[in-house]
Simulated scan of single mutants.
Amino acid sequence: MPEETVLYVCTTCRAEGDTSETRAGARLLAALRERLPEDTAGLRVEGVECLSVCKRPCSVAVASPGRWTYVYGDLDAEASAQTILAGIGLYAGTVDGIVPWRERPEAFRKGVVARIPPSPPVKEAGRP
């Protein structure tokens, strides 16, 4: 069974010049949830209070056990949802989380903030 992929969306991101009462990050989360197909298995979309990428709003992170974690910024709250979901679909289809550069959506190629290696497996007591 494939491991669950989690898309973390910074809900506290505020776009420059944004005067809306609802922050851009919260609007992005709502747009993603609205466009997420009901039969999507293995993907969880979660709002988080801060990803510390404040200079590049809106930001998201994608993670899955045994795969690289990616953080992306500079995403438009209203226009990026479908692009993000397409990119996450590509990510979920890999063994290690690495989607070939040319296959990534342009927003992911330009907006990558960080790539974090997979956590090593937890060692059992008494085993090296």
Rank of each mutant, 00 (worst) to 15 (best):
M1G: 15
M1T: 14
M1H: 14
P2W: 04
E3Q: 13
E3T: 09
T5E: 05
V6H: 02
V6M: 06
L7W: 02
V9T: 08
C10L: 08
C10E: 04
T11H: 04
T12G: 11
T12F: 03
G17W: 04
R23A: 11
G25S: 09
A26F: 01
R27P: 05
R27K: 11
R27V: 09
L28A: 05
L29E: 03
A31C: 10
R33K: 15
R33W: 06
E34K: 15
L36K: 12
P37Q: 09
P37L: 02
E38H: 11
D39N: 12
A41P: 00
A41Q: 11
G42N: 06
G42W: 04
R44F: 05
V45D: 02
V45K: 00
E46S: 10
E46T: 10
V48W: 01
V48I: 12
V48A: 04
C50A: 09
C50H: 08
C50N: 08
S52G: 14
S52W: 13
S52A: 15
V53N: 12
K55A: 15
R56F: 13
P57M: 05
P57E: 04
P57L: 05
C58G: 05
S59D: 07
S59W: 03
V60P: 03
A61R: 03
A61D: 04
V62S: 06
A63N: 07
S64V: 09
R67T: 10
R67P: 07
T69E: 13
Y70I: 07
Y70Q: 09
Y70C: 01
Y70F: 14
V71F: 04
V71L: 09
Y72I: 12
D74E: 14
L75V: 06
L75F: 06
D76A: 13
A77G: 03
A77K: 02
A77W: 01
E78T: 08
E78W: 01
A79K: 13
A81I: 08
Q82L: 13
Q82V: 13
I84M: 07
I84A: 00
I84S: 02
A86W: 09
A86L: 12
G87N: 07
I88G: 03
I88Q: 01
L90P: 00
A92R: 03
G93S: 07
T94S: 09
V95Y: 01
V95T: 14
V95I: 11
G97F: 01
G97T: 04
G97C: 01
V99N: 03
P100E: 07
W101Q: 14
R102K: 13
E103K: 14
E103G: 00
E103F: 06
E103Q: 15
R104S: 02
A107R: 08
R109W: 00
K110C: 04
V112M: 14
V113C: 11
A114Y: 02
I116W: 01
I116Y: 03
P117C: 06
P117A: 06
P117N: 06
S119P: 00
P121S: 05
V122H: 06
V122A: 15
K123Y: 12
E124T: 09
A125D: 12
R127N: 11
